[in-house]
Computed example of a mutant assay.
Amino acid sequence: MELDLWWLLLFPAFFALGWFAARVDMRTVLKQARAVPAGFFRGLDALVEDRTGEAAQALAEVAQQQPGTVDLQLTLGKLYRRRGENDRAIRLHQALLDWPDLPAVQRDAVRFELAQDFSKAGLVDRAEEILSRLVDGNMALAARQQLLDIYQQDRDWLKAITVARALRSDVHTFHHEVAQFYCELAQGELYRSNYAQTRTYLAEAFSANRKCVRASLLQGDLELAEGNVEAAIAAWQGIEKQNFEYLSMAAERLFDAYEQQGRPMEGIALLRGYLRTFPQLELTDLLYQKVATYEGEPKALEVLREAVHARPSLAGVYRLIEAQMVELSPESRLDAEVARGVVMKHAQRLTVHRCKRCNFRSRAFFWHCPACGEWESFTPNRSELN
């Protein structure tokens, strides 16, 4: 009975202690909130409203009031860099590095930011020098990623390969990128007619990614340059098993190889087979021209009509109108000319390659997206904008 009484007396005491602790914590919070300069909140509000100039000014005032806050200085430097004020960002980060008591972890973070400043300002050599010293420290991953971007911009593919392999992990193997880097090297050697080195680089590309379509395209070009026409045809036909969408990039090469051997009809049969099996391939115009040359206009019109009906497109309709104009009366031909002109105008404007990652659109095809930097993300066959 006495124990129960003691418990009843202790309950109010527990509640009192809890209330007191809450009051102490609340006072601490309020005290800390009052200690934050008003300029910080002005800068934050300006950032939310995307008024970067006003935000930079407000945060600079706060940084002057609290010069020992490294995180705030780093944020201000990033804001300067985002606004294109690279010289101010460089001065700020260099001043931070002059602090004698700056901890090692924060010193590496400041160096990384300074490297980005130099890179943005076009001083790539100085950025590379700083980043190379960071690859063994706390900023190793970020430094290597930044170096990879620099080497790709400079087209220094051997260094890019080394960094990409160092970045390889279970999350990102970089095998597509490494294969593309070797293809860039092979392309350069092929232009210089250095066939032995081209073959070596292509072997490395296939070793990194056996489904690398670009390597197969270059392999065919190499074989053809050395006079191995059958080997070239085999390399280009192998693209069907790698990624059939890229057959449209090999189609004209394939036909020319068959034509060179005096077998143009086999080339036409191959193209027709591809188009029937994969109607999304951009082969209609090429096939029409080759059939018209070797089998006559009526047969070419038949092939064209079949392809356009299977997969209607502005480019196909343009060619279909053009193919039938000779059969029209002079008055009807004028009407058809107007229709053909309108269709072509819209086809040129709306038919584009696009990046599957960032949706960047271009009339030209790229292996490396100019917008997001992704490799092998561009659609090989153009599509029409909705």
Results as ranks from 00 to 15, higher is better:
Gly137Tyr: 13
Met139Asn: 05
Ala143His: 04
Gln145Met: 10
Gln146His: 09
Leu147Asn: 10
Tyr151Cys: 11
Gln152Thr: 11
Asp154Met: 15
Asp154Ser: 15
Asp156Pro: 04
Trp157Tyr: 06
Trp157Arg: 07
Lys159Trp: 07
Ile161Phe: 11
Thr162His: 08
Val163Lys: 10
Ala164Pro: 05
Arg165Trp: 04
Ala166Met: 09
Arg168Leu: 10
Asp170Arg: 14
His172Met: 04
His175Gly: 00
Gln180Leu: 08
Phe181Thr: 00
Tyr182Thr: 03
Tyr182Leu: 03
Tyr182Ile: 00
Glu184Asp: 09
Leu185Met: 02
Leu185Glu: 04
Ala186Thr: 02
Gln187Val: 12
Leu190Asn: 06
Arg192Cys: 05
Ser193Glu: 15
Asn194Gly: 05
Arg199Asp: 10
Leu202Ala: 06
Leu202Thr: 03
Ala205Pro: 01
Ala205Ser: 10
Ala208Thr: 02
Ala208Trp: 07
Arg210Thr: 00
Cys212Ile: 00
Ala215Leu: 03
Leu217Cys: 10
Gln219Leu: 10
Asp221Val: 08
Asp221Cys: 06
Asp221Asn: 15
Leu222Asp: 07
Leu224Cys: 04
Glu226Met: 11
Gly227Thr: 06
Asn228Lys: 15
Asn228Cys: 09
Val229Gly: 03
Ile233Ala: 03
Ala234Val: 14
Trp236Lys: 02
Gln237Met: 14
Gly238Thr: 01
Ile239Gln: 11
Lys241Tyr: 01
Lys241Trp: 01
Glu245Gln: 12
Tyr246Asn: 09
Ala251Leu: 03
